[in-house]
Amino acid sequence: MTMFLAAVAVFLLLNIALGLVRIVRGPTMADRMLAAQLFSSTGIAIMLVLSVVLAEPAVLDVALIFAVLAVLATLAFTRRLWKSTGGR
């Protein structure tokens, strides 16, 4: 089981690596923000998996915090940055 979950973690990490292309290519800021959003979800998933693999309950706390704060960056992005530049 551990072996499987570790493989899942590697797979998810590969997903992140793949998604980096979108950040590099853009083309708009929204695309990049979306990529970040995806990474956040994927990262949370990795943490969930790791919590079982490492048998460390505190890992879930970290995942929890990421989950609850995931909205913050997007919020700042839409409220502060996007508006001030008109999306460009």
């Binding site: 929204a30 923000m33 979306l34 959003q37 956040s40 979800s41 989950a67 609850v68 995931a70 909205v71 997007t74 919020l75 992005f77 839409t78 996007w82 508006k83 999306g87």
Partner: peptide, 12 residues
């Protein structure tokens, strides 16, 4: 979070 963020980005 993901839903709201998606909505916000799309709206923006």
């Amino acid at each position: 979070a993901s839903t709201t963020a998606a909505h916000m980005v799309g709206r923006a």
